[in-house]
Design a protein around this nucleic acid. Structure first.
Length: 743
DNA sequence: CTATCGGCCTAC
DNA sequence: TTAGGTAGGCCGATAG
């Protein structure tokens, strides 16, 4: 999203000094007396997307497709003088400007931001422009004043010299496996705020470390505890597992516990108020929901404030350690309680910071819910207020892969009929893989969860690989998009990351293509010369989508480096060997001619695929030599060729007509001032489909007149065909469509 | 082939 | 002047 201002007039940009912070945080547009919102930056926090172009945001937020026209086309239209074309170019820009308002409206940004401002007690723009420390301080300071505390902030050197934090949250190493039995997931609700309240942990209740170390500091200030006095009173004090002592609340109630108590109890009140609302009171419901979310947010970042060692204004390592260590002890106690309680015959198989995964071997879903509730209330009972263990869900079945990575079918109540597909940390929820990986992974997991028969997964995957190898796929599923931060990359590294390579290449052609800091730049992997590194094989998707592109999708890279390793990590746990599945797979075109290949020759074939450009006969799908359109058999049968070509061409022309009609309606405008649709939105599936059909049509039109010539020349130069486009040109041939793909 | 590092993204 | 944290997995590249 390039134009993001909600501003009438902008001062020249060079009058503002753009420093590092401005580059990474500001909007780039400054208007006196106005608040300028960078909607692109706002959207990054609002919705989780692969790319944040206006088209992508409009599609998810507004459920509306909008066109993306190249600047070149717009400029040409505008310069064509008064008339329909110029009108269209202006209308296009106006539509984009209005889009900003629609998006802001749809997401209720202004009201929600205002609500945050009210809850935290800060001004509107600070909600968006400043960090969470500011919010915590705002609330903390206000409360501290009522208790007659005076706030004095430490200096930079004091913050820098504070002792390092020593305590770590508990992250269990899971028993990586497939679990066919119910696994209940229990969470401590707001664990860290609960610890602060339950144990009265605060800056103002901390007496320091009782086990004397070299420390003559507490947090950022110099302080030496009177250990003798403290030891004498130890039975009246609170002693946390990291060796720090706090006064109990009856002696002095801490500011932090008081603040968090108010936040949590207010949140409960707000949630109760929400339940009482009539269905017609939607506006009030939205406001109350925004309010309770704001309260949850502030409760959760309060711990971060005490632990903000790098950037913090008032961190306290001992306090932060106490919070972490109390939390850890709470979880560890709960885990060993479950493990040692024979009546449940349960075993904790994983836990992270505040959560517990409990395996109930041989039990039913219903029994799991009963036992889960028993465990939750038993452990809540064991702990001081307001510590609460809640049964979140039951996985049935699930895979635990590694720390922070798991996936399962989840049930939130015993009467739930249809389970939810719930994945954490794996490729289905990550944005550093492409659609081909996340979709095949999710689908094969669903297949396996529905019926744990690995053969079904195998069949499914082999079908997908066949589709990929024969090009019957949308290139949209092969686009990676990763954040690029130019200027932050290590000078010692041999090359930039792939997305940065593509970005800098675009900047060489046009300096205005410089990406925003942390903009997600799309790229796609194409075939390269033998031994090429990944960074040598990445291009802008538009380069591959161009009608006369010399590039070919590196299907083997996607299968062998992306899809297989990802699925292997999951299904390897149930004995699958994905590489073997791939090698024994019937190859595209092979079935058609009834040939069977041994494993060895398939392995060899795979290597050849990797190094040499090959493609498929447009009629039977048989693998053919680079840029030949037909296999030998089809080539010989002239009549069949003529009939097939005519039929295929007619169908494709119908397809392209249909697709163009969709594109004409997109955005409510007719963009066909010239012939052909000009939109190049990488967020739009229709664009990929349109290019695919166009490419095939073009090569079909060529095949009739060029077949003979192409076959002759290419049988003689196939050895030289190693350096894709370059060699091709040296033979005086127009680069044709290499990406023919259908069966 | 293994160890290590930089980069990216996620869980909590 | 601005700026919550740590743990942790995995890819790709390079050095040994």
């Amino acid at each position: 999203m390039r134009s993001e201002s909600v501003a009438a007039e902008a001062v020249p940009q060079n009058s503002i000094i753009e420093d590092e912070w401005g580059r990474t945080h500001a909007s780039g547009v400054h208007v006196g007396g106005r608040i300028v919102l960078n909607i692109w930056r706002l959207m990054r926090n609002e919705v989780k997307l692969n790319m944040y172009t206006a088209e992508a945001v409009a599609e998810t937020v507004l459920r509306r497709k909008i066109p993306s026209l190249p600047w070149k086309v717009l400029a040409k239209w505008f310069e064509s003088g008064p008339g329909r074309a110029r009108y269209r170019s202006i209308q296009y820009i106006l539509e984009r400007a209005k889009l900003n308002l629609h998006i802001m409206n749809q997401l209720d940004m202004i009201n929600r931001t205002s609500e945050l401002a009210r809850v935290f007690g800060i001004d509107f723009f600070s909600v968006l422009s400043r960090g969470s420390q500011y919010r915590v301080e705002s609330m903390l300071l206000r409360l501290a004043h009522t208790q007659n505390y005076l706030a004095i902030s430490p200096g930079n050197h004091q913050v820098a010299n504070q002792p390092a934090m020593e305590c770590l949250p508990l992250v269990m190493e899971p028993e990586s496996s497939y679990y066919a039995d119910p696994v209940i997931v229990l969470d401590f609700q707001s664990l860290y705020p609960s610890m602060v309240i339950a144990y009265n942990l605060c800056f103002c209740t901390c007496l320091g470390k009782i086990t004397p170390s070299k420390a003559d500091t507490l947090g950022v200030s110099s302080y030496t505890p009177d250990t003798k006095k403290i030891r004498n009173l130890i039975h009246e004090l609170l002693y946390t597992p990291n060796g720090v002592v706090y006064v109990p609340s009856k002696v002095r109630k801490g500011i932090l516990p008081r603040l968090l108590e108010e936040i949590l109890s207010t949140r409960i009140m707000v949630k109760q108020a929400m339940k009482k609302l009539a269905p017609s009171q939607q506006v009030s419901h939205r406001i109350l929901n925004a309010r309770q979310l704001a309260l949850k947010l502030i409760a959760n970042v309060t711990y971060g404030y005490t632990a903000a060692g790098f950037s913090g204004r008032m961190p306290c390592a001992e306090l932060a350690d106490s919070i972490v260590q109390c939390g850890r002890r709470t979880l560890e106690t709960a885990i060993s309680f479950v493990n040692s309680n024979d009546k449940w015959k349960a075993r904790v198989i994983y836990g992270d910071t505040d959560s517990m995964f409990v395996l109930l071997k041989g039990r039913s879903l219903k029994e799991a819910f009963t036992i889960g509730r028993e465990i939750a209330s038993a452990i809540t009972e064991m702990n001081p207020n307001p510590v609460t263990l809640k049964m979140e869900k039951v996985y049935y079945p699930c895979f635990l892969l590694t720390k922070k990575r798991y996936v399962g079918y989840s049930y939130e109540s015993p009467d739930q009929i249809k389970p939810m597909f719930d994945a954490k940390g794996i490729e289905t929820v990550r944005r550093d893989t492409c659609g081909a990986v996340s979709k095949t992974l999710e689908q094969s997991l669903r297949i396996y969860f529905e019926c744990p028969d690995i053969d079904k997964v195998k069949k499914y995957m082999q079908r997908q690989w066949t589709k990929i190898l024969s090009g019957r796929v949308s290139l949209q599923d092969f686009v990676f998009a990763k954040e690029v931060r130019l200027g932050t990359y290590s000078a010692r590294a041999s090359s930039l990351p792939p997305a940065a390579i593509v970005a800098t290449k675009a900047m060489r052609a046009d300096p205005r293509a410089e990406p925003r800091y942390a903009e997600r730049i799309p790229y796609i992997v194409v075939h390269g010369e033998p031994g090429a590194r990944l960074v040598d094989m990445v291009v802008n998707p538009l380069e591959l989508l161009a009608i006369n592109s010399p590039f070919r999708l590196n299907d083997i890279y996607y299968i062998r480096k992306q899809i297989i390793p990802t699925l292997q990590r999951v299904f390897g746990l149930v004995g699958a060997d994905l590489n073997h599945w791939f090698l024994e797979m019937p190859r595209p075109g092979r079935e058609a001619v009834g040939k069977r290949h041994s494993l060895a020759s398939n392995a060899q074939r795979t290597r050849i695929d990797y190094y040499y450009i090959s493609k498929h006969c447009i009629l039977c799908g048989e693998l053919v030599q680079a840029s030949a359109h037909l296999c030998q058999n089809c080539f010989k049968n002239e009549n069949a060729v003529a009939t097939a070509l005519t039929g295929r061409t007619t169908k494709l022309e119908k397809d392209i007509h249909h697709l163009a009609a969709i594109c004409r309606h997109c955005g409510g405008g007719d963009w066909c001032i010239e012939s052909g649709v000009k939109c190049i939105s990488l967020a739009c599936s229709v664009f990929y489909e349109r290019r695919k059909v166009q490419k095939e049509l073009q090569s079909l039109s060529e095949v009739g007149v060029r077949t003979e010539l192409t076959n002759v020349i290419h049988s003689s130069c196939s050895e030289a065909w190693k350096y894709f486009g370059h060699t091709y040109h040296s033979y005086g041939l127009e680069p044709q469509c290499y990406y023919i793909s259908f069966i």
